[in-house]
Design a binder for these strands. Structure first.
Lengths: 107, 107
DNA sequence: TTGATATTCAACCATTTGGTTGACGTTCCG
DNA sequence: CGGAACGTCAACCAAATGGTTGAATATCAA
């Protein structure tokens, strides 16, 4: 029942996780290096990365001891489309956007 | 410390709240009418509207007995900008986007 | 005034979330 | 081999979240 948008938005709701995404925007990083600037345990960052990965926002690949974390911007696309629809209320494609939204309506 | 993006994204993380926003996209509505299609108490919907309102995604104006709920698409703009940055990683304005992100990086 | 409608408040509950610490399994290096 | 680095797991904790019910507060209408 957990929608992909649920996972995406709740992953984005935490400032630590958004900061991680911003760091990964510049480069792929090891878990330890992701954790370095934060005043928080490595285990906590590891958990945040699990959340980001299970939302598809980040992929992780283990090479040797090191687990490399990579930003996956495609996963943001659906959520971005969702949001842009609200910003463009007066645009011509409102019907298509509402059809997309209708998938989420109850009943 | 609670960033505006925190509030926006965590408000959007709930499917009931996203559905409410979709309903309000079509028209302003009273709280009771917002609640009608959901299999959930009115009090629960009232709480969801408080969350949406405190994130600035919805405004509420009481006229008589009825509290009218109105979509506020502007509040989505900052979050939308944030997300679009990730989708446009190869765009020229990457520097400006990173400057914006830098506000969220830890000290 | 009496009663129905609209909405919130308060108390409560179960579950999830975001963090900690310490032990653990891997992998590299000397 | 022995130790250090990388990362996760497990148990625990406090606080937040999402829901319930029942009482309370306004407002309209007869």
């Amino acid at each position: 029942m957990t929608d992909a948008l649920d996972a995406t938005f709740s992953a984005l709701a935490d400032p630590t996780r958004r900061a991680i995404l911003a760091m990964l925007l510049e480069d792929d990083m090891a878990v330890t290096d992701v954790a370095e600037p934060f005043e928080m345990s490595l285990a906590a960052i590891s958990k945040h990365l699990v959340v980001l990965a299970s939302a598809g926002l980040v992929s992780q690949e283990k090479r040797g001891r090191v687990k490399w974390c990579k930003l996956e911007p495609d996963a943001l696309r659906a959520a971005s489309v969702w949001m842009q629809g609200f910003g463009q209320m007066d645009a011509v494609d409102l019907d298509a956007f509402e059809a997309f939204l209708a998938q989420e309506l109850p009943g």
